[in-house]
Amino acid sequence: MSKNKKQPAPERAETEPTIAAGGGSAWPFVLLGVVLFGCFLHVENTGGAFRADVFQAGMKNSPPQADEPPEVKSYKRGARLYDACAGCHQPNGLGQPAQNIPPLAGSEWVFREKPDRLIRIILNAVEGPITVNKVTYDNPAMTPFRDALSDDVIADIATFIRGNAGWGNSAGFVTPDQVKAIRDATEKMGTQKWRVETLQAID
């Protein structure tokens, strides 16, 4: 370096820039951390939860539809509520034949024209041998949901189970009023479970 000082300007062009000793500062990383925190907040607030169908900054779910019929909304709610049933009947609705848990997909008990039997089963459960798709299941594990679930919830779940095209079911939707009617009519049963013969006798 001492050589450079003595030389006049033109000599500079012959030498290359060098690097000083030491260096290294922490402040860029501290600053980065601070800005990064702000950035996380910004993305959290305006990033639409990284969803492909959220275009509006500030929203986190796809917008609800104005012209969606109530049964479609009920079906969508039911899809979320079905999680409670999926433990036994499985998310694919096929049940667990090995554990004697009957399927809901393609079950003649589910997609009857009238939803009454399905509502009755959800309200009070069923015990004893039951034949679904020519296979007989016998499992006393199902619990009555009369006290656990409201009319709305039962209607939503029944709508989802009956109308789930992915399972091959395409029966009509269920309204809370239908559930309420059956709940009131079977008030006396309490938490007593149905027998298959009794169910078939009613309807």
Partner: peptide, 10 residues
């Protein structure tokens, strides 16, 4: 046109 991700007032 109303789209699921961007509805328009009916």
């Amino acid at each position: 046109v109303s789209l699921p991700e961007a509805p328009v007032p009916s």
